[in-house]
Simulated assay, not measured.
Amino acid sequence: MRMAGQFRSYVWDPVLILSQIALMQFIFYSSLGLWIASLDMLIPYSPSLNQIFNYEILGFSSAHGRVTMMAFILNSLTCALGLLYFIRRGKQCLDFTVTVHLFHLFGCWIYNSHFPSTITWWLLLMVCVGLMAVTGEYLCLRTELNEIPLNSAPKSNV
């Protein structure tokens, strides 16, 4: 059943949604790994899984903690580009952002064998969710608001 006046019809496609979730998780962890590896070159530290999943290393007291937090923030901007190119709907940016970060929360919980409890980790998570969702939604809405060409016939010079 098609509704009149609707620009895009939304069709429930669980395979598409699950593949988009998997793709966004891949983008999240691969770009985070690249940011961590790149920023770790600034300080004498070799990248490890602890920087991704161990929430206790995050903080302002050490250069290592500050660099890791910067990698998470830069990763939010990179993932916003992933929302633009693979999700393409401003209305779905918050949903996919929260989903990506919920899976990251579960990953941290499993990796550390206990629930994340530091205020720094939770604040960083909220900043990253907000930054990724707002930036992704802004980028998607910019492309959604582009003019739709009504005449597809080639122009002739008369």
Rank of each mutant, 00 (worst) to 15 (best):
G5V: 08
G5P: 01
G5A: 06
G5L: 01
G5Y: 06
Q6T: 04
Q6I: 08
Q6F: 00
F7Q: 13
F7T: 09
F7D: 08
F7V: 11
F7M: 12
F7C: 06
F7S: 08
F7L: 15
R8V: 01
R8C: 04
R8D: 04
R8Y: 08
S9Q: 10
Y10N: 02
Y10K: 15
Y10A: 07
Y10R: 14
V11M: 01
V11F: 06
W12A: 04
D13G: 12
D13I: 15
D13V: 12
D13M: 14
D13F: 07
P14A: 13
P14L: 12
P14W: 07
P14T: 07
P14K: 07
P14N: 11
V15Y: 13
V15L: 13
V15C: 01
V15W: 06
L16T: 15
L16K: 12
L16I: 04
L16G: 10
I17H: 13
L18N: 03
L18G: 02
S19C: 08
Q20W: 05
Q20N: 06
Q20Y: 14
Q20G: 01
I21H: 03
I21R: 01
I21A: 13
I21T: 03
A22R: 00
L23A: 03
L23P: 02
L23C: 04
L23E: 03
M24P: 03
Q25M: 15
Q25V: 11
Q25L: 15
Q25N: 12
F26Q: 09
I27H: 02
I27Q: 06
I27W: 00
I27N: 04
F28W: 03
Y29D: 00
Y29M: 03
Y29F: 14
S30L: 06
S31C: 15
S31F: 13
S31L: 15
S31P: 05
S31V: 15
L32F: 04
L32G: 07
G33K: 09
G33E: 08
G33I: 10
G33Y: 10
L34Y: 05
W35N: 15
I36R: 15
I36M: 10
I36W: 12
A37P: 05
A37E: 10
A37L: 08
S38G: 15
S38Q: 08
L39R: 09
D40A: 07
D40L: 07
D40G: 09
M41W: 10
M41D: 02
L42F: 14
I43T: 12
I43Q: 04
P44F: 12
P44Q: 11
P44D: 06
Y45S: 15
Y45L: 14
Y45R: 13
